[in-house]
Design a binder for these strands. Structure first.
Lengths: 122, 122
DNA sequence: AAAAATGATCTACCTTGATGGATCATGGTA
DNA sequence: TACCATGATCCATCAAGGTAGATCATTTTT
């Protein structure tokens, strides 16, 4: 959690899982993304508040694409992703939401919707 | 374009559009997201390589959620978003993809913001 | 006209992501 | 046993994001 109370560590996990799912090394990913291996290691282990360009570079190298989804649609989108994953029968399928949520785990009910949120509208 | 050849400006546009769609001022968004108005202005106009936490803070404040979508699914996901938008009949519906791609074109001039990426490694 | 609100700018100042390059323990393998 | 690839660490340095607070030219509203 940083200043804004936002988790950042799980993105490292997501990236790590995506990388391992593709069975490539950190150095390979480094080569492909242009981001130094040392930094990737840091990203995957420690929590690093990535810059957008870095995130995009990594995502791109991992065949992922960050999309801003309207809150109301996230369940549907995640469901879509989840479904496709179960079809593809991926070894370990992890939820790749940037906000790092639950844990899809194949046999999951419907939508474990997002974390709570302090309404601070003014 | 930054060091990695990645566009970053359009996120500012996306945020701006999302904000205007919600009809709130930069200051209101600033209050809600915790990010100073001066910075939001900069983000929306100049291109700022946002950090993840900032992006999340803004997205959250705008009822958006960044999700890492497998490349093969992005069209489906965007389609989903697009559809829902046309249903909701939003004034100006903008593509909210972080990579700013295709061009939803529901009832719009169809400006293609595409910026294909170069495939390097194999 | 006066007041209020909006978005863009500006000036420090601090923090930290990112780079480049090296190292190191570990595990697997020729 | 040597060799090599892997991931984690470390260091120095730089660039840029982010903060805080104020200001300013315009609009919008009263």
């Amino acid at each position: 959690m940083n200043k804004l109370g936002i988790e950042v560590e799980h993105i490292g996990s997501a990236i790590k899982e995506a990388r391992e799912a593709k069975k490539i090394s950190q150095r390979a990913l480094a080569r492909k993304s242009g981001i130094p291996q040392s930094h990737i290691s840091k990203i995957e282990t420690k929590g690093v508040d990535l810059k957008l360009t870095s995130l995009l570079a990594l995502a791109r190298a991992l065949d992922l694409e960050p999309v801003l989804v309207p809150r109301k649609l996230t369940p549907a989108v995640k469901s879509l992703i989840r479904t496709s994953k179960s079809v593809t029968v991926t070894p370990q399928s992890a939820e790749l939401s940037l906000t790092g949520h639950p844990a899809t785990v194949a046999a999951r009910p419907a939508y474990t919707l997002d974390e709570e949120e302090g309404d601070d509208d003014g």
